[in-house]
Design a protein around this nucleic acid. Structure first.
Lengths: 341, 341
DNA sequence: ATGAAAGCGCTAACAC
DNA sequence: GTGTTAGCGCTTTCAT
């Protein structure tokens, strides 16, 4: 425990305290080059007893190297992006790289601002959700000269690398399974989010699959804000009272699906015989409900892991690898709410 | 859209492109000092058409100012810290300050490492969870020369400022309410986390309240890992089959409480008559269950907001305000699972 | 209203 | 194995 210091300590302080040149102190503190054990120990002792904390700002400026990875995602509130983060951390924890997170709240102009802010720290790479960005954001990303990984969605042209699933296809797959299981009057319940492109693509793929089977969406219901579980209940009640003969409800996420499921169980619906239900995401949080909701895994951790690996390969390897385009293919988990075919 | 640039652009590039000195460019880009409208426009145009992104590393080094706030929390996986983050963002969004998050996974040595890493970026302040830290971490915090806000818990001595609730008292309050409601055979279900000091303090306060009423904890059950909802079910089944005459179950968090609640409803327990239940946190996510679980709000957003305000006041104001010690006092939300007295 | 010089704390490159 | 020199790209300060 040293005295209260106003001016933060510098290498020079450690240098003076240990009687070793700044340069050698720097080498010791970064485990670089050859330093005799004796000198190393002297430096380490001095640094520790002074309570020296290196200044990465200066280090980064001098070395032109910043071990930060910008991660730009819409939100943290629904467990899907936290899970992506876990995948990213899992990989980066074994490297000197560190994630720095920025949130966009699904607003393109916020994304642009956050991106600008993060690029101004000259990170080693950028991982960001989605393929849709403002022109300015796209230009910044193209000119950044660092690996860019667009994640979650693969329905579109990436700027550089991309890792995700096809949400269009995910919607289609679920639609086909529902049709194959014999359901015919299908309702859709989702978020009122013109800017959630992935939810939109799932919706499109889904209606397309129904159309191919000669079916139309029988009814739909949208919400914004509030507790998803409650909204799921409310929307389910609304849609079923408006269109009582629906035999399937497709929810755009598991959380509202869970609310709907609880409602339907309470009301005594025969699930999945009379009424089938499905969500999207595979939210681990929800295991433990009375019945398991049918869903599709969005491969969130895996996406995070792969994205981090791409950035790490660029930043830590010598050459710049080719841009990668990785499409994962989730399957359906039927749970207890989708009739077996 | 400009050509692919390998070397990132510098102020000098903008200066040359606009025919204005670097200094004036810098002034324009930071909205500082007097610059004629004509010059300003020329600079802005040049910067935009080049796609210039300032280098904050250099800026921070030169100005000795970094608009980053280090936020160090145990985890992102259970919705409590994401909510704290929301409170922090809410306040910082109106300032030039930016949060940077580091996760400790409840490990003191990780906290120390993350703290060291973050301090090396010379942030304007530190917000971190809990009052328990390694000696080295404590020393770093004391010497950092920036505002330190320890959050969540107020049962202990802070290094500088502190914002939170007394978990000891929260446990006691719930214990007293349970006793007052006439429950007599109480079981406890929680996480097997020697390092979750806040859960421990709630447990201590709770048992203390029971003791004061001449009661002992009738049984207890602990878990680690897995889906909290599922674990809540399993533990509830286990504790009730081992000690069938329990009349109250106190869960250390709402998620396992919700699992337990679902289990008890299915098994046909009379709640809250025959069996009472309570959790902790006030997790918004869980509204929408068949019954509302009794709980106490941990004031997460409010804590985040207040902590951010303290840091902002230091960083943005001139003088350094006195350390603050703010203790919020949550009340009980009885919901539908706690008998009225 | 604008510019020139100095330097923030560190590291790359090279000497010894 | 260790030291010296010269910046990294900005901002501060002071001059004009």
């Amino acid at each position: 425990m040293t005295a209260e210091t106003r001016r933060p300590l510098t290498l020079r302080d450690v240098s003076e305290a240990s009687g070793v040149s700044e340069m050698t102190v720097s080498r010791v503190l970064r485990n670089r080059g050859d330093v005799s054990d004796k000198t190393r120990q002297r430096v380490l002792d001095a640094a520790k007893s002074l309570g020296y904390v290196p200044n990465k700002i200066a280090g980064a400026l001098a070395s032109q190297r910043v071990n930060l990875v910008a991660v730009i995602i819409p939100s943290m509130s629904n467990m899907v992006f936290p899970e992506v983060m876990m995948g990213i951390s899992e990989v980066l924890d074994d490297t000197p790289l560190q994630p720095v997170v920025g949130l966009t709240h699904y607003k393109p102009e916020r994304e642009e601002a956050v991106l600008y802010e993060m690029l101004s720290w000259r990170p080693s790479g950028v991982i960001l959700a989605g393929l849709e960005h403002t022109d300015a954001a796209r230009a910044m990303l193209r000119n950044a000269g660092i690996p860019i990984v667009e994640i979650m969605d693969t329905d579109g042209e990436p700027i550089d690398s991309m890792v995700g699933i096809s949400h269009r296809r995910a919607g289609r797959t679920m639609g086909e399974a529902i049709v194959a299981a014999g359901y015919r009057k299908v309702g859709f319940l989702g978020t009122k989010m013109p800017l959630d492109h992935r939810a939109r693509k799932r919706f499109e793929g889904f209606t397309q699959a129904l159309a191919k089977a000669g079916l139309e969406m029988a009814d739909q219901e949208f919400y914004a804000g509030g507790s998803a579980l409650v909204k799921g209940r409310e929307m389910t009640e609304a849609i079923l009272s408006r269109t009582p003969d629906l035999d399937f409800l497709y929810y755009s996420n598991d959380m509202i699906g869970a609310g709907g499921l609880l409602y339907c169980i309470e009301k005594g619906y025969d699930i999945p015989g009379q009424l089938g239900l499905a969500g999207f995401n595979g939210v681990n949080l929800l295991k433990g409900l009375p019945k398991h909701l049918a869903t599709m895994d969005a491969c969130r951790q895996e996406i995070g892991r792969k994205a981090a690996e791409i950035v790490a390969a660029h930043a830590l390897g010598d050459g710049a690898p080719e841009p990668q385009r990785i499409t994962l293919t989730p399957g359906i988990t039927p749970g207890d709410t989708l009739r077996a075919v």
